[in-house]
Design a protein around this nucleic acid. Structure first.
Length: 749
RNA sequence: GGGCGAUUAGCUCAGUUGGUAGAGCAGCGCUUUUACACAGCGAAGGUCAGAGGUUCAAGUCCUCUAUCGCCCACCA
């Protein structure tokens, strides 16, 4: 006869399905209140040895432009897994959080909102008011981001939180700028920038959208006396030509190279030199390129190599600033018509073809980008650093080539080297207001009343604070946001002060970010750390892939397919979200996520919950002190788990989180639950009290180890289960987060 | 144009130093048995893109081809 079913005498919350939302908020608060995210407190309370090896991760600061998405959630999960794992392995573990001011992105976001709501531009508000409004917006963003970071379960030390534009980081940025300036590595010079006439601002390369458009390619001669015809889609710029370039191997023009001509072109006197340059494609058009230095990046570089003059033809409003009354002040498109008409009337136009071309437009305003020469600040990457005998580029290359930094997955090292080889001087000035203002001041010597008799000169001062005296005016530009990001691993630890944190946690152990920003960010961190500290910012760089929706599309605002991690937390629990992001996502590979997958891991959390319920329902009457080490079945099964655990540990140590998490998932569900619990039922229904004691002790011991090993991956539910399990004297007070990783436990015995 | 990668079950993807092809989801059949139906048991499903090579042995290493994707440069 079957025994009557009786409700087991266990914590009543185990009788209901697991409720992640309620549990997760409560558990995070408990962790935070314990203070144990801070490694100093872990030492103070005796969970970490005072002489423990440090392990540090500085969190990539998310842009303070709004909210976190699933890509951030993946990054934070990976960081948190390593942090929790190392903490459990006795390291003095620091995960330092922060946010990025993201200068251009943030300013244009706020500008857009103000434009939409108040119909005002930043010029209407003025610099000071605009900055105040941006600060206000950023404060809100940072609050949201902090909340999201907590919801994901990130065990970071909030007492050390940093912001790329706070006072401490500003000191670091200015100190570094001045050092580079004094070393001659930062200089000011003209360069062609992407100017957006519509938005009246320069824009970054990655804010350009290439659009295919129909255009006319005109082939003509400057004048009847000129021997070569050239082709262009922009005849209006040709009044700024100073050379015609041909390929050095082009036999057609060989004899003409070196000759110079004075010509009149549509009413403008031009001087054209014929030069040979390898950049010229013999196959295109006539094989001869009219060089317009001021309005084409390629031509500017050719002019660099051949020392050509660079007259500017087009101004910031995309209007003509050269030429006679026919052209002066006209829009570029009108000037083009006028010049083509003139060419026709002079019979200089040889050919007119329809072609399609890629035209650069500004992502934010849709305006056609006009390449214009502007005065900018640069970091010289190919110049020898005084006293070091090598260049910044060398520093970047050597860090990876000499294996001081390992990039995962490895094939990105090739991409990295390829990028380094093609690197040009880094333009660090931006014509926007939000950011670290360039720490350079100017005044005219005239204005100050000195240097009598001489013509006025500009005096320049570079320093970490404003210079003494009258009449100084600070450079209006701000720094590229990546300039401050480059200092992130050491400025967050207190540099330029020689702090205890800097000494303890730098170089950091691991950096984790999406491969998309490898060049923007990690390369710059390597550059700056090598320059300033003669070391690397981190030992290992773990690149995550891009998270896409179930159709393989990137998440974006315009598609409206974004998933807020908070939404996931509320629907399925952050534990489930974390598992879904980690399992099957090897370093550097893109992955797709959809709710079905996350739902599967919500079920997993519930499975863990029910396993616990099953075991604890046999707690009463079964001795938890029994020794199972001599019992064949238990010994065999325990050894099998130890093998799995060793495997999982190796996977984590080798950054194979996708394998480690899947093995633990599989073991918990299909070995522990499906086999061990099923086997145990027969024992618990028998009358053999000795066997029951041993089996119960075995299950509870093993389950505690499994829960512990799962904790870095799925921290909330495991912490909650841990609080319900019987514990020995040693474990009694400890929360799971600061408990010892199981294989270590064995080693210590 | 230069560089990097991918192609494995219906779908999404693992597969570590070469050693008998794996998971999750979906689908199919059975089971509402006292942890869990957010479950269990069972079966089915693959010439590992194609061709060639190295090897005792290739999803894995090499060469070529095809298709797809990403990054960089960008056409005067």
């Amino acid at each position: 006869m079957k025994p009557e079913y009786q409700e087991p005498n266990i914590d009543p919350k185990l009788l209901a399905p697991y409720n992640p939302t309620e549990t997760e908020r409560r558990i995070y608060k408990m962790w935070e209140d314990s203070g144990l995210f801070n490694p100093d407190i872990c030492v103070e309370k005796g969970y970490t040895a005072p002489d423990a090896k440090p392990y540090s991760i500085i969190m990539p600061p998310p842009n303070a432009t709004g909210t976190l998405h699933m890509g951030h959630a993946l990054g934070l999960t990976v960081q948190d897994i390593f942090t929790r794992y190392k903490r459990m392995n006795g390291f003095r573990t620091l995960l330092l959080p922060g946010t990025d001011h993201a200068s251009i992105a943030t300013q244009s976001k706020v500008e857009k909102e103000i434009q939409k709501n108040e119909k005002k531009s930043r010029h209407d508000l003025g610099r000071e008011e605009m900055l105040r409004r941006i600060d206000e917006f950023v404060a809100g963003s940072r609050k949201t981001i902090t909340e999201q970071t907590k919801i994901i379960g990130t065990s970071c030390d909030w007492s050390r939180e940093a912001f790329t534009l706070d006072k401490e980081r500003n000191i670091a940025v200015n100190t570094l700028f001045k050092k580079m300036y004094d070393d001659g590595l930062i200089y000011r010079g003209h360069r062609i920038v992407n100017w957006d006439p519509k938005g009246q601002t320069t824009i970054a390369d990655d804010e350009i959208v290439y659009e295919e458009r129909k255009a006319k390619l005109y082939t003509f001669k400057y004048s009847k006396d000129f021997p070569i015809a050239i082709s262009t889609t922009r005849p209006e710029t040709k009044i700024g030509d100073t050379a015609v370039a041909v390929n050095p191997d082009d036999t057609r023009y060989k004899d003409l190279v070196g000759k110079e001509y004075d010509l009149e072109f549509c009413g403008v006197q031009i001087h054209i030199k014929i030069i040979a340059d390898k950049e010229v494609d013999m196959e295109f058009g006539t094989g001869a390129l009219g060089v317009t230095p001021a309005h084409s990046i390629i031509d500017w570089e050719i002019a660099d190599r051949h020392n050509l003059p660079r007259p500017q033809v087009i101004n910031e409003y995309a209007k003509m600033m050269l030429g006679d009354e026919r052209l002066l002040g006209k829009k570029t498109t009108e000037a083009r018509e006028i010049i083509v008409e003139w060419l026709r009337s002079e019979s200089l136009l040889e050919k007119e073809e329809d072609i399609t071309q890629n035209i650069s437009t500004a992502e934010r305003t849709g305006g056609i980008v006009e390449p214009l020469p502007k005065l900018q600040w640069f970091v010289a990457v190919n110049k020898k650093i005084p006293g070091k005998g090598k260049t910044l580029k060398d520093i970047m290359r050597e860090a990876v080539a000499d294996k001081k930094i390992t990039i995962l997955p490895e094939h990105f090292e090739k991409t990295y080297f390829h990028w380094i080889e093609n690197l040009r001087d880094w333009c660090i000035s931006r014509q926007i207001w939000y950011g670290h203002r360039i720490p350079v001041w100017y005044r005219s010597t005239d204005a100050h009343g000195r240097q009598n008799g001489k013509s006025s000169e500009i005096e320049t001062y570079c320093g970490t604070t404003a210079p003494e005296g009258e009449g100084w005016e600070q450079d209006a530009d701000t720094l590229d946001t990546w300039f401050s990001s480059g200092t992130w691993t050491f400025s967050t630890l207190g540099w330029p002060n020689q702090t205890k944190d800097l000494e303890t946690y730098h170089p950091t152990s691991l950096m984790i970010h999406a491969y998309e920003i490898l060049f923007f960010w990690s390369a710059r961190m390597i550059l700056m750390t090598g320059y300033v500290l003669d070391t690397v910012p981190f030992h290992t760089l773990y690149l995550t892939g891009v998270i896409r929706d179930n159709q393989g599309r990137k998440f974006s605002k315009s598609l409206g397919n974004g998933i807020d991690p908070i939404e996931i937390a509320e629907k399925f629990g952050s534990d489930a979200g974390r598992m879904a992001l980690i399992i099957g996502a090897a370093a550097g590979t893109d992955s797709k996520i959809d709710e079905n997958k996350i739902k599967g891991y919500k079920n997993f959390a519930n499975k863990l919950w029910n396993i616990t319920r099953f075991i604890l329902s046999y707690q009463e009457g079964n001795d938890a002190q029994a020794d199972f080490s001599q019992s064949v079945y238990e010994k065999e099964q325990y050894e099998a788990w130890q093998a799995t655990l060793a495997d999982v540990t190796t996977d984590i140590e080798n950054f194979r989180l996708h394998l480690a998490s899947e093995k633990l998932y599989h073991y918990s569900w299909h070995t522990f639950a499906d086999i061990l619990l099923e086997d145990a039922k027969a024992v618990f229904l028998s009358d053999d009290q000795h066997a029951k004691n041993i089996r119960f002790q075995f299950l509870i011991t093993l389950w505690k180890e499994v829960i512990t090993a799962l904790h870095p991956f799925i921290p909330f539910v495991t912490e909650e289960i841990w609080s319900l399990l019987p514990k020995d004297e040693q474990e009694k007070d400890a929360i799971l987060m600061v408990s010892v990783w199981p294989s270590q436990r064995i080693n210590k015995q």
